[in-house]
Nucleic acid binder design. Sequence first.
DNA 1: ATGACTGCAAATGTTTTGCAGGTTT
DNA 2: AAACCTGCAAAACATTTGCAGTCAT
Lengths: 144, 144
Amino acid sequence: MKEKDIFIRFLSDRGLRMTNQRGLILDAFLGTERHVSPEELYGLVRRKDGTIGQATVYRTLKLLTEAGLAREVDFGDGVLRYEHSYGHEHHDHMICERCHRHIEVVDERIEELQERLAKKYGFVLTGHRMYLYGICSECRRRKA
Amino acid sequence: MKEKDIFIRFLSDRGLRMTNQRGLILDAFLGTERHVSPEELYGLVRRKDGTIGQATVYRTLKLLTEAGLAREVDFGDGVLRYEHSYGHEHHDHMICERCHRHIEVVDERIEELQERLAKKYGFVLTGHRMYLYGICSECRRRKA
DNA sequence: ATGACTGCAAATGTTTTGCAGGTTT
DNA sequence: AAACCTGCAAAACATTTGCAGTCAT
């Protein structure tokens, strides 16, 4: 399990320690492929350890983000979510407004045009967020 | 002033009334070309009427949004901002991470590729949000 | 011992809501 | 009167922080 090693390394590089709670949170995070909110993750972790506090979950998610293992995703619904970052290339998101299912997408040509657009205005891009909202085929079929 | 008429129309269509406060808030909103947060707008309006409450500002901004005069913009910094919608075509945003200056941008080719990308996954797009983050030329020059 | 870690509760910051009083129709 | 509006303060919400106690080195 490479991620755990990375995390341990990251922690010790900063004089921090790997703890039981951090391990549980990391496992729970890695164990789901969904975009989890801190609250959801808190629920998952609590099944393993009922005494854990949500502050610890919040704090650990920040650490995982700094360690490059997690990435914050903001769909704009007021809750921050986290997705796997290690071994997961950059991608954007397409979200169904009915069933809230979402797909990760990448389009090289779009990425390239974004760069060009930035250059046109004298910007050097550091990152971007792109969310495509729509209705997926299933939802359209179900309620056409 | 077309916007005011639209707002009055929108209100009366729903059995609501144009009031002094709503008028002031609309004027203040139209009077700035920046992306204002409710708090900023509250500050502006209070200069004209010191007794206005911020709840009224929040409520009116929601109304303006429903009326199609304002559009919510979420830069992901924890504050919702509002921009003019009437007579302002769709556009995306490019934000300087140093000076927080932002530019409104549109790229037809990107829009088109987004549509194609959606179609590829069976989605029909209803909208999208795209934020490009970077460093603007001035900030690069100032602190290269 | 020192410094890190944790759970808890309190604080934060933005936005929403309940309410009592005021205004319009 | 009925329905809408308003300001205020309280509530709601996700997230952060302070703190006192605990644990690892």
